[in-house]
Design a protein around this nucleic acid. Structure first.
Length: 294
DNA sequence: CACTTGACCTGTCCGC
DNA sequence: TGCGGACAGGTCAAGT
């Protein structure tokens, strides 16, 4: 699921609910979902108050008033859903736009707050995780040391974007976009959408993509990520926001999950699905050609 | 170092 | 209906 727009949507939602909440208790039922959960929960978590919710790349950081922070990666199927005391969000049966009662069979970690509200970390595939770290050490974890600038970071120039991509000049442009050490926040959905927007064949070698097209690509990435945040992100299967609601960006997607449909720029030409960089990849064969064309 | 592939998991869908 | 395989939003480690 979650690429930058989905994680950012969760961050915005949690920011409405969590600051000021005090942890009353926590529990988890799968050790890898909270690999360094403190044995002495009372000492490290109970009583801690939430200060803020931040995001870096696809990772959320919940800062506590104890000089510790919870860092959370949703990976493919993670969800972070807040429910207040009366469970008025999503109580009862799931609807088309919202998940149902929690906890459910995918719930891996639960945080109880002193006012009776709860935060659920659900993760069907168990790839995601929650960790508790001293706030000062958060920037020093391997992922943050290696990760590139956020795709939406306004300080990154076209030239810096192109230069960072050239570190992977012999791999496909799609593989380079998915490499978080090059630029952070893009995943499979927004890579395909951005490459379509910029009219670049995803399998083209980075070193063969003209600079002009790379500039267009960077613009496309940022435009698409911003629109995706505005529309609440993309729900392909599992993704929901902090209230358990699905995102609507895929209604506006041009190629992702649209194989067999007409390209909107080329009526009569069907979107195809293939594999690039080991991932399912959606292409308009007319917009995106596998050779150097300009 | 740059690059690719398989592993980590559960669940669903599709062909036989 | 059952069964095997492919596939699903993301990283990692280990291989070349």
């Amino acid at each position: 699921m979650p690429e930058l727009p989905e994680v950012e949507t969760v961050r915005i939602g949690l920011s409405q609910f969590l600051p000021g909440k005090r942890v009353k208790d926590t529990a988890h039922n799968w050790d890898k979902s909270f690999p360094n959960a403190p044995k002495d929960v009372q000492a490290y978590l109970v009583g801690a108050k939430i200060l803020s919710i931040k995001r870096r790349a696809k990772v959320l950081i919940i800062e506590l008033d104890t000089k510790y922070s919870l860092i959370i990666h949703l990976k493919m199927t993670g969800q972070l859903v807040y429910r207040d005391k009366t469970h008025r969000f999503g109580a009862g049966h799931p609807t088309d736009s919202m998940i149902g009662a929690l906890p459910d069979r995918t719930t891996r970690v639960v945080f109880d707050f002193t006012d009776g509200s709860q935060l659920f970390f659900n993760d069907q595939r168990k790839f995601g995780w929650v960790r508790l770290l001293p706030t000062a050490e958060v920037p020093n974890i391997d992922f943050f040391k290696k990760v590139g600038p956020d795709a939406l970071d306004s300080g990154t120039s076209n030239m810096e974007f192109r230069n960072r991509l050239q570190r992977r000049k012999n791999s496909s442009i799609k593989a380079a976009l998915l490499d978080q050490t090059v630029i952070a926040g893009i995943g499979n959905i927004y890579a395909d959408e951005s490459l379509w927007q910029a009219k670049i064949y995803p399998g083209m070698r980075v070193g063969d993509v003209p600079a002009r097209k790379l500039n267009n690509l960077f613009t496309a990435i940022r435009d698409i990520l911003r629109i995706a945040i505005k529309t609440g992100g993309s729900t392909d299967r599992n993704y929901v926001d902090a209230e358990g609601k699905k995102g609507s960006y895929l209604k506006f997607a041009k190629v992702f999950r649209r194989e067999g449909q007409d390209c909107i720029r080329h009526p009569g030409t069907k979107i195809i699905k293939t594999k690039v960089a080991g991932r399912g990849t959606h292409i308009c064969p007319k917009c995106q050609r596998p050779f150097i064309d300009m």
